[in-house]
Structures are given as structure tokens and as C-alpha cells.
Nucleic acid binder design. Structure first.
Length: 124
RNA sequence: GGAGCCGGCCGGGUGACCGCUGCGCCUUGUGCGUGGAGGAAAGUCCGGGCUCCUUCGGACAGGGCGCCAGGUAACGCCUGGGGGGCGCGAGCCCACGGAAAGUGCAACAGAAAAGAUACCGCCACGUUCGCGUGGUAAGGGUGAAAUGGUGCGGUAAGAGCGCACCGCGUCGCUGGUAACAGCGGCGGCAAGGUAAACCCCGCCCGGAGCAAGACCAAAUAGGGGAGCAGCGGCCCUCGGGCUGCAGCGCCGGUUCCGAGCGCGCUCCCGGGUAGGUCGCUACAGCGUCACGGCGACGUGACGCGCAGAUGAAUGGUUACCCUCGACAGAACCCGGCUUACAGGCCGGCUCCCCAU
RNA sequence: UGGGGGAUCGUCUAGUGGUAGGACUACGGACUCUGACUCCGUCAACGGGGGUUCGAAUCCCUCUCCCCCAG
């Protein structure tokens, strides 16, 4: 099932998050920062780092996480393999659902494109 | 028709496709079926269950509660009643025990802030006409609060000084389980306020919290050095073991005592690690009916199975409809309280206006 | 998720029921030829709401915000 998002394609351990944060490409705006570390694993994987500091209410955190998962799931097929971590900024709490989706999709695509260019240059 | 009071309830709906997650099933596949947030899941303000800590007993601290009766596992909650206050009313609100056990406090103002006194006054006497002495607390004035209130009598002026009514205290009777109420007698104004000041009285309370705690597997370690090690008995492989007293420690997050428990002790150095399972949802459970009760609630019968994640699940896209959707997301579980909340529904009741 | 602590001038703080005090800063003045130092003065606060009390920063209830601890 191409559009599914099982737990194997999620980042769960603290070590895995540290691994991404240590060396990663980043894209950000007022709503999110997305970090990506590319590797030769078969599928792209998603990690969520939705902080309580930036989204105080549980409802807001859950909403942001749902939109992040959904955006990743729908775009997964066209993304380069690697680990992606989504970090929320303060204004994401007030943003509408469609704005969150749009921002996330932009970040995922641009990071994926950068990696494709880099890999092309390396092979050439 | 308008204004208002009380109680209860709902919290977008129906499909399609793509996803997440618990459980079940089998033909184990990216399969099928089925379940999947709240009335507050929130704040963590109370009360319990559960788990561990030796919750053992007592004393003293400390904390909480506070009209009466009942409900409940328990409560600071709820129900009914009493008293007080607000409202025309339906109704609403109240930390509502004790000031005659003791201690403290009351700034400023005021004569005086609690067994003390007299500023302006009033009255009598004296007078050098300035005032002095004595009586008095009705009037003025201060203050948040001033030694019962109103009226009549009384008097030099006054005063519970006397009387009536009210208030207060006390005794009795009646009603009520009680809080309390009513009636009657007596007392004769004493006993001011403040207890969300200390306190007294009565009742209650051990502490920590599922990151509690239990289990499984793996790995690592089962060390090294220094100092000090009372008295007695027994065993024996002569180095230890068991045991009594003494001693030391714990006595569990307040302390002490008793009981109890543990024991070679103290210091220094070194090594070492984190995965999984259970706890985890079936119980003070939910619904309907009947019975008891004014009610909270209880009892019985029948029916139902209703989230259990662990970076943490309920979403996305789309179609249609409507009154265009508030506050807000379970994390061990219940009972309350408090706070937030678009809009709407149902039932009962009060007041005002109009018509008949 | 659970537990604990806190909120007073712009900043750091004192204040256990009776006029909110101090230091630094800011502003004004004095001193100086000018500046610094020093001295004098001024401005400025009890997180919000409710209750108890004659009177609340202080006592009680409630809400909001901030910080810390436990993986």
C-alpha cells in the first residue's frame, strides 16, 4: 500500500532523533523547521518533534502532528529516502490546516530536490 | 406578549476513497470483521480504590473540617430541615461551634476602645465673675464600633432609678430524632467587637505516588585497599559458624517513648547497565423497569460490554444537507468541586401587561 | 503525566493586618572650566477577580502566568 504510514516508517527513539539533528539539511519558515538526513535505507521515515513550549495546548499539538503525518503520507512516494524530522514553531498554533499542509509540502519537496541535485553532482 | 427563576439534555449529520490504532478470526496478507476521546478528558482544590514503604500502639506537634439529620467506599460533596440575609415573587446566597477558660489586637480621630472616663453641655453650691468644687451621661461631637431601644413616670439636672412593650439572659412546659421554634415564669442590664488573631471544644487524617510497583531475558559485577572490631555459651574440618547480653543502626519525610526489625562497622578507590512484559482496564460500571424513601440514595429483576496508546492512535480528501459547528484531546481508575464553552432542545414555576 | 516553588517600582529586593521602604537605573538640581565621583530632590510597584475585616501586599477562595524536579 503506497500511501500507508506504518510505525516502521517513523522515528521513535531518542538516538534516531539525535542522529538527524547532528547533521542535516534544513528548511524552515514561520510555521515549521524540517530537518532531513539522507541515507540508503529503502523508505523515507518521519519523526515528529512537536514541542510543548511552542504549542501549549494538547489540542494544538495533536492537530499539528496529524497534519504533519498526513502531509508526509501523501507525499511519501516522491520523496528521497532518508529521515525527516518536523519541528514546530510558535505560530503554527494559530495557522489553519491548509496553511500547515502547504508549508510542510513545500519543505519536504525542496529538501528532496536538493538531495537529488547533490546526488546527481556526486555521480557526475 | 414581555421580563425572569429552577432542573435536565445535545454538542453537526450521512455516504465514498485513502490512512492510524486495540481486539478477534482465518485460507498468515501489507486480509477480513469489529471497537476507538469529554461534559468538562482541563485546573489538580478535596475524597477514595490500588501499589510499595515495618500504614503496630501511645503522646506531643502539624493539617483539615465545623447549625442539625440523613446519603455515601469516603469527602471540604450531595439531599432534606433549622437560623440569618436579599428579592414583589418563583427563588438565590451564607467558613453558620465557642468571646462566661485564657492571651492578644483595635492605626487615625475621640473625654474615653473595656470594669476606664467626661471635651462641649445640663444642674446645684461657691465665686475675685476668669472660674472652682460636686452631681449627671438625656443632648452635641469623634469613630468601623461608645456600656440595651421606644414611650411614660420620676428628678435640681439626670440615670433601668421605676413601669409597659421589644431585645438579652435564665428556668420550666409543649412540639420536633435534632438544629430549633412557641408559650409562661423569673432576673434586672450584667456578659461590647474580633476566632478566614492565637486559642478552646468536637470529629477526621501515617507517607509517597502507576515515572507506584512486580516479573522476564541479556550484559556487567559478585571486587581491591586502609583502620577498628567488647563479654559469655555451643559446634567444629581451627578457621569460621550459630546464639545471648552489651553496642550500633532503622523506627519511613515532625519529634519522643514503647513494641518491633536489622547488624561486623567506618572510610577511600574501581567496575557496571537498560530491552521487553505485566500493572492497563470488568467494575463503588452503564441502560430500562419495579419497589422503598419528601429527597440525595438504596434494593431487586432484565439487558449491555463501552478507548487503552507508549514520541503516544479518531485524521485527510470529497459529495450532499442543516440551525454552518463553542470550549477543548484519555495516559492507573473512580466520586466530587472549580473553571472554560457557539448555538440549540425539553420540562416545571414566578411577576407584569393586554384580550375574553 | 505526576510533584514542588514563585509573582512587590524599568531591574534586584525588604515588608507576618494600620501611610508600601531601600539599592541600581531614569529625570532635575548642586559641586566643576567640562566630565566622573559625591550630595539633594523627583517619577515609579503589591499579577487579575471575589470574600473575611472598620481596614488586606499580608488571612481565605479562585483564575492567569513564570520557574524547577522526576524518563
Amino acid at each position: 500500500m503506497r500511501f500507508s504510514l506504518p510505525r516502521q516508517q517513523r522515528l521513535l527513539k531518542s538516538r534516531e532523533f539525535q542522529n538527524v539533528f547532528r547533521r542535516s539539511r534544513r528548511a524552515s519558515d514561520g510555521l515549521f523547521m524540517v530537518c532531513a538526513r539522507f541515507s540508503d535505507q529503502p523508505e523515507p521515515r518521519l519523526g515528529l518533534a512537536i514541542s510543548k513550549k511552542q504549542a501549549r495546548r494538547a489540542v494544538d499539538r495533536n492537530r499539528i502532528k496529524r497534519h504533519a503525518r498526513e502531509a508526509f503520507r501523501s507525499l511519501k512516494a516522491e520523496l528521497t529516502a532518508g529521515d525527516y524530522v518536523v519541528v514546530n514553531r510558535a505560530s503554527a498554533t494559530q495557522a489553519s490546516g491548509s496553511a500547515l499542509r502547504k508549508s510542510l509540502e513545500t519543505h519536504f519537496r525542496s529538501l528532496s530536490r536538493k538531495s537529488a541535485r547533490r546526488q546527481g553532482r556526486d555521480s557526475a
